[in-house]
Write a protein that binds this DNA or RNA. Structure first.
Length: 62
DNA sequence: GCGATCGT
DNA sequence: ACGATCGC
């Protein structure tokens, strides 16, 4: 798996809209449905990890 | 509810 | 073992 490079605009748990590079991105979808891509992020403010949707065209990485 | 993932 | 992610 390649590392994630491109940043994503996400809402941090602290409520700020910031551009972050995900630690990992994967597809989350039930059988027969499209689902969403999810990224694992770390809030630079608090250090807390959180998950957020990433754009459908974002590469699977991690 | 389903799906994968991993920090907590 | 559970939460939380999103849209269908």
């Amino acid at each position: 798996m390649p590392a994630c490079t491109k940043s994503v605009k996400v809402r941090t748990p602290s409520g700020k809209e910031v551009e972050l590079v995900p630690k990992k991105v994967w597809q989350l979808s039930p059988k027969g449905r499209k689902g969403v891509k999810v990224g694992l992020f770390q809030d630079p403010e608090t250090g807390k990890y959180f998950r957020a949707k990433v754009p459908d065209d974002y590469p699977i990485c991690g």
